[in-house]
Amino acid sequence: MPESSLSSRTVLVTGATSGIGLETARHLALCGADVLLHGRTAEESRRAADHLSATKGIRPEQLRTYAADFARLEEVEALARNVVSDHPHLDVLVNNAGMAAPERHTVTGDGNEIAFQVNFLAHYLLTCSLEPALTSDPGGRVVNVSSSLHRTASIQWADPNRARRYSRLAAYAQSQLALTVFTADPRVTAVSVHPGVCDTTLLPLYAHEGVTPAEGAAHVARLCDPAVEIVNGAYYEGHERVTPAPAATEDRTVKRLNKLADLLVGRGV
């Protein structure tokens, strides 16, 4: 990726304190981007910034830190306000933060199943709230870090929090399907990507071994590059554009999901 393609670009990476998010931030900063590092806490974000600043070729002034616990929607809203205030022109949003669904059914203080909120609803709310800053310039885009497991999922419309029948794998897969469906939302230019099975905290959901987070991050960072032409709403596995689950391309499903998400995050209520 040539340095000039991302120099002077501003990119927000959620979940940038470890794994694929941290390595994506490193890749982007090395290519000249100004990177906004999101972490669950201010301490985690500062630690990530210090770690990246020690990388040859990354200047500390390229990095800015933000904190928000995605299990608290009010913190997501505050994050969006702070980013818009500091950076009224945002070129790329990387929705990367994620968690494995816990063994036991867990509900946030906002009333949502925790994996559905952290992996999808928080990113939905953040993306919608950042619309005033997200540029419409060529190359501006949202990159949703999804999963091939979205193909195994279904959205339980009558019980999205899976209170009646809970399975951690099904809950995680549902959150990834929702994020992939949201990619087709016409309000923003967006793509989704499965970066491969990587050796991160989510590895047990997929396999016993995986590639390094840096290898997975390369696929994410590539899609942030304005020199890489994308098809709006497309889904990638690694570098290859492939067809996602059928639900991810259905207009009716996109509209239904937006309506559900607006209800669950309190937008338009």
Results as ranks from 00 to 15, higher is better:
52 L>A: 04
46 R>V: 05
97 A>T: 04
22 L>P: 08
44 E>V: 01
89 H>M: 05
61 E>L: 13
176 Q>V: 10
258 N>G: 02
116 F>C: 03
61 E>Y: 06
87 H>F: 15
31 C>H: 13
172 Y>M: 02
168 R>K: 14
219 H>N: 12
143 V>M: 05
116 F>D: 03
124 Y>E: 12
31 C>W: 04
63 L>S: 08
169 L>G: 00
199 D>Q: 15
30 L>K: 12
98 G>C: 08
211 V>M: 08
235 Y>T: 02
53 S>G: 15
124 Y>K: 06
8 S>A: 12
76 V>F: 12
177 L>E: 06
169 L>F: 14
93 L>E: 00
58 I>M: 09
192 S>T: 06
111 G>S: 10
224 C>H: 08
213 P>C: 01
138 P>R: 02
95 N>P: 04
221 A>D: 01
95 N>W: 07
156 Q>P: 00
122 A>F: 10
196 G>T: 06
171 A>C: 08
47 R>N: 10
234 A>Y: 09
238 G>D: 05
199 D>L: 05
27 H>W: 14
240 E>I: 11
19 G>N: 08
61 E>Q: 13
253 T>I: 15
175 S>T: 10
182 F>Q: 01
195 P>W: 01
23 E>D: 14
187 R>I: 12
31 C>L: 15
170 A>H: 01
12 L>N: 08
258 N>L: 14
227 A>K: 05
1 M>C: 00
80 A>N: 08
19 G>E: 01
34 D>M: 00
27 H>N: 10
57 G>D: 10
155 I>F: 04
193 V>G: 03
55 T>L: 02
122 A>L: 06
115 A>C: 12
38 H>L: 07
249 T>S: 13
180 T>R: 02
81 R>N: 04
68 A>Y: 11
107 V>Q: 03
103 E>R: 13
42 A>E: 14
80 A>L: 14
175 S>G: 12
103 E>G: 09
172 Y>L: 03
265 V>P: 04
15 G>I: 13
160 P>A: 05
93 L>M: 03
31 C>E: 14
46 R>I: 01
251 D>Y: 00
146 S>W: 07
254 V>L: 11
11 V>T: 10
153 A>D: 07
116 F>S: 04
192 S>P: 13
48 A>S: 09
143 V>F: 03
151 R>D: 04
46 R>G: 11
169 L>T: 08
36 L>P: 12
133 A>S: 15
84 V>D: 07
209 E>S: 15
32 G>A: 11
113 E>Q: 13
266 G>F: 11
193 V>M: 02
235 Y>E: 06
125 L>Y: 09
255 K>R: 14
224 C>D: 09
35 V>I: 07
119 N>V: 05
241 R>G: 03
182 F>V: 04
80 A>K: 01
183 T>P: 13
123 H>D: 08
21 G>C: 11
254 V>I: 15
47 R>W: 08
215 E>A: 14
63 L>E: 12
10 T>V: 15
244 P>Y: 01
114 I>C: 12
169 L>W: 06
165 R>C: 10
141 R>E: 01
236 Y>K: 01
129 S>Y: 01
174 Q>F: 06
99 M>A: 05
197 V>P: 00
190 A>P: 14
67 A>E: 12
113 E>F: 06
185 D>S: 10
157 W>D: 07
42 A>M: 10
200 T>L: 09
236 Y>G: 01
170 A>W: 03
119 N>P: 11
258 N>C: 15
29 A>D: 05
69 D>L: 04
